[in-house]
Nucleic acid binder design. Sequence first.
RNA 1: GGAGAGAUGGCUGAGUGGUCGAAAGCGCUCCCCUGCUAAGGGAGUAAGGGUUAAAAGCCCUUCGAGGGUUCGAAUCCCUCUCUCUCCGCCA
Length: 428
Amino acid sequence: MIDPKLLRQSAADVAANLARRGFEFDADAYLALDERRKALQVETETLQNERNTSARSIGQAKAKGDDIAPLLAAVKDLGDRLEASEQALQAVQGELTDIELGLPNLLADDVPDGASEDDNLEVRRWGEPAELGFKARDHIELGEGLGQLDFDAASKISGARFVVMTGALARLQRALIQFMLDTHTTEHGYTETYAPYLVRAQALVGTGQLPKFEEDLFKTETETPFYLIPTAEVPVTNLARDMIFDADELPVRHVAHTPCFRSEAGSHGQDTRGMIRQHQFEKVELVQFVAPDASMQALEELTGHAEVILQKLRLPYRVVMLCSGDVGFGSAKTYDIEVWLPGQQKYREISSCSNYNDYQARRMKARRRNPDTGKPELLHTLNGSGVAAGRALIAVMENYQEADGSIRIPEPLLPYMGGLERIEASTS
RNA sequence: GGAGAGAUGGCUGAGUGGUCGAAAGCGCUCCCCUGCUAAGGGAGUAAGGGUUAAAAGCCCUUCGAGGGUUCGAAUCCCUCUCUCUCCGCCA
């Protein structure tokens, strides 16, 4: 959520910033509505004050044993007037809140302008796409050739956009997850965190998926519904909900491995083949809570933490800064890390690292105590994939493939593979 | 699933209709005392919002959430959510 104070004072500036995203914020309508709010609020508070004052004097009169009948008569219709005013105020405030929850975050100044992902700005590259010396297979061909990747089996059980993996390939994904968790906990100072996969609506409002993107989520039909998490960002960031951290407790760094569930509504036809875009996938997520003035630096660091994973695995990648039209709803600035996929001859997103500054914190009242003023203030939240395990698996398969269709195990994963150095076709 | 208890400020925890935004303790901040890695004394210390150019001041709201009773609700009533205890069931 954008600071409502800022909305009021600089509505035109806000609108200009959001316009860079292609988002239209009707500043005049908002300000007009806020004027009504202001008038109603003053009226309501005046009546409340009147009520409080008279209630107090009735109490005092009663204590003295005076006759309170005339006093009661004087406030006879106050209740009705107050109730009408309160209801009108509540309605207007509700409208304002709806608008505010529907606004994306303000973009950081250095986010480049652009309309789509084609306008993203490449920041750096690491590694060279390897010369395989033969025609690269994609992960589907590789996995099915190994007999360890089965989309038909998955569709029998759950339909499209699911996968079944078996044997060494299934283990390889687990190895990747373990490797990532161990790296982030031992080398980057993150606390391993296990959190719920089912969450309440309130948690999703906090991180920004609700109320606007409900159609992207899976929802249970229980009496009070749960939503399946689309990313560990949701439960883990909500650890800061209603918290006031002491200044010396920050930064807080969590790393969590969870499955992620996405309805992929509206993505029909995109990446329908293979396991690039699934309803269910595994991800290792990095989340940080930091002091307000530290978040931009923290974004650089967090992105670097994700990059380390790819570097250790010797997977070529590039980092792009998302342009104004491609930055996610609640993010002020986002770096995507794109890994080289020989099967597609393309860089594909494997991590997205974002600074939300106080946008999520305001929604979930996540604060820290400012050491200088002693007052609570909103902290800043960040998150990034460190990295998506399903896509990392694809990247390893395609980059480590051999001419015969087998897959070498990257060196850092060997300890997690029980001595297996190469995945070959299942004999069964 | 059955029975019961509870949800109060940064934390612990009093408070069952009117000077309660809320005792006390802890923590924190400042001051004093003390020749010292201790102790003692004093003061202050919830958040959000409105009014204001801003501050001060004044006002409003908030004691899990929402509704209700009342001139007046942390306190009474209803609904919901959550937590805990016991029993049952269960990986």
